[in-house]
Design a protein around this nucleic acid. Structure first.
Lengths: 336, 336
DNA sequence: CTGTTAGCGCTTTCAG
DNA sequence: CTGAAAGCGCTAACAG
């Protein structure tokens, strides 16, 4: 690989290896003179220290693992962006592990990570229901772990999530405050915890405000086929005539919008829409589409900061803690 | 870190370190019996080899670097997804470097990488105009590099891009074939090469088909402010009355759609729209929005495959080559 | 088939 | 202030 290493520098400068090493680390016990010579030559030859050798010796990699179900997803890529942002300021590198929602892959990754490959782990688990023994092991090896978004409550370490339940409750409450009586809810597969939380927030808001939950008003959009989802939504709107729609993801809100246009329903007069939105595309379409935005980037930064605080201190692992980050709800009322 | 290492396994099994090492690598010169014993104990103690030690010795990291301007972008995150997909099958890990379009960061990353930190590099450069000496250095050190999307033509290695010019030409030609005479073009900042390529494709298609280029029909949307962009587009449509719109990114097409609705223009009767689309949201809104989709995921896979082929063979670096991947144009004509 | 030995490139005692 | 030497955990000649 790189032919220039600490040894060749030492030879050329007629110094010992250790002196060069210390000079490069700006150790206080090296004379200004020698230090300058060493640094000058290193720069001239474009010396780059071997990360692995240093890590092996120091038992530290200056690398963190980010384990996520997917990257081609606006939410996760924003989180990664946030994580990287703080990692860069700390001089750390980011190793990405994509589980693709495959539990076995996650187990393998976590086991691999235990080898000292990374100094810390930021993870959003692939499944919130399966066995988490592998994560317990990690935690026991006192390598700091921070969970984000999809967490295991029973592992005593730092966790950080968004306020899905609360935000959904507030969003639904908003529709109620606007006078909506028949509020529809568009839901994604129940297997996802966030889906259940969002639907629960919706239901509780209704009941707390004297409205009963009507299963017919809940559109379960379980598949990835936009056409089928469109049909579910369109049928729901046509048959149930909701005066408000709470959508648990942005795409479904876009389909709702399209359906309203086709059914000649006025937004927001006939139907008020509020939706989770990470792409922030919904408000481009209609100035009256209210949105709930999760603080993904900020969550990434927060999670990374927690991890680095543990790394900086004592490596004693992280305290059991759970932070919930607040989503930003933007109400748009204009009727054009 | 992990207390269990090859040495402790050897001690427990009363074997030599090298025997254990070989058994773990399934070397053919170890007896079935010993091999089984070693593997059994390794599994029992959850032994994980130290990646850094092995890499140091073998001068190989089983890690590749992916250097991109950003990750919170649908195109790049899809590419990363593709890269990771093939990396996983090859047993490689992915180290992410986000330049955030900062040239200096890119230079630092590339220098760092030269230390043998990774076995290969996949990069989309931060700027196509600046000095690329750092990349030449990399290439000279015979660590394989594959450029994707944003490339430096004058570095003799593998490059892979999408057919921005051709796709734009074809898209514009399609509008012409549909009878459009006044075709608008919505452009992003000229500083980006892809913007220039897309506009060029648009202009050449017009001229090759007997239509002249009218600067008034080109909406230069240079800023990130959706409201300003909307105004630019809305003014253009109102004043210039185009009968076709070629949009170089999806967001601008959505604004165009909104503008048409507000101006009571029928799509596609009055205005036909075709747009680059990576989010695939446009067609959700209107069944007559035609789209051009770049093969981002496939590009990631292709780039990674090229890199791994070099890694598998001789490490002699990659041949100077340029592949252009074809975008997928989907024509949607229905008028509802 | 198995063991001994010499490093990979670096950091870090321990001696001067 | 500088140098010698040990060793991080692993692999790979080289010997048997």
């Amino acid at each position: 690989m790189s032919e220039v290493n600490i040894k060749s520098l030492a030879a050329e400068l007629k110094l010992s290896i250790s002196t060069v090493s210390r000079a490069l680390q700006n150790s206080s016990e090296i004379g200004q003179n020698t230090k300058a010579r060493v640094i000058a030559l290193a720069k001239k030859l474009n010396y780059q220290p071997n990360h692995y050798a240093a890590g092996l010796r120091r038992k530290q990699s200056n690398t963190i693992a980010v384990v996520v179900p997917e990257v081609a997803d606006n939410f996760f890529s924003l989180v990664i962006d946030g994580i990287d942002k703080v990692a860069q300021t700390k001089g750390y590198h980011v190793l990405i592990f994509l589980t693709r929602d495959d539990y076995n892959k996650e187990v393998n990754f976590i086991r691999h990570i235990q080898s000292g490959r990374v100094d810390g782990v930021l993870i959003s688990v692939s499944s919130e229901s399966k066995d988490n023994e592998h994560l317990h092991e990690l935690n026991k090896k006192s390598i700091p772990v921070v969970f984000f978004d999809r967490v295991f409550e029973d592992i005593p370490t730092a966790k950080i999530t968004t306020d899905d339940y609360k935000a959904s409750y507030k969003a639904t409450k908003h529709l109620i405050d606007q006078g909506c009586k028949r509020i529809a809810c568009l839901a994604i597969p129940e297997t996802l915890l966030i889906s259940r939380k969002r639907v629960q927030g919706y239901m509780d808001a209704l009941e707390d405000n004297g409205l009963s939950v009507d299963k017919n008003l809940i559109g379960q959009c379980d598949n990835n086929d936009d056409e089928i989802n469109y049909k579910i939504i369109n049928d729901l709107i046509e048959q149930q005539k909701p005066d408000g729609v709470f959508s648990s993801i942005e795409k479904l809100a876009l389909l709702t919008y399209q359906s309203c246009i086709n059914l000649k329903l006025n937004i927001p007069k006939d139907v008020k829409i509020i939706s989770f939105s990470s792409l922030k595309i919904a408000p481009l379409l209609h100035p009256a589409l209210s949105t709930i935005t999760q603080p993904a980037f900020e969550m990434g930064k927060a999670a990374a900061n927690i991890l680095f605080s543990a790394l900086a201190e004592s490596k004693t692992g992280l305290k059991d803690d759970h932070i919930e980050m607040e989503s930003v709800i933007v109400i748009r009322e204009s009727s054009q």
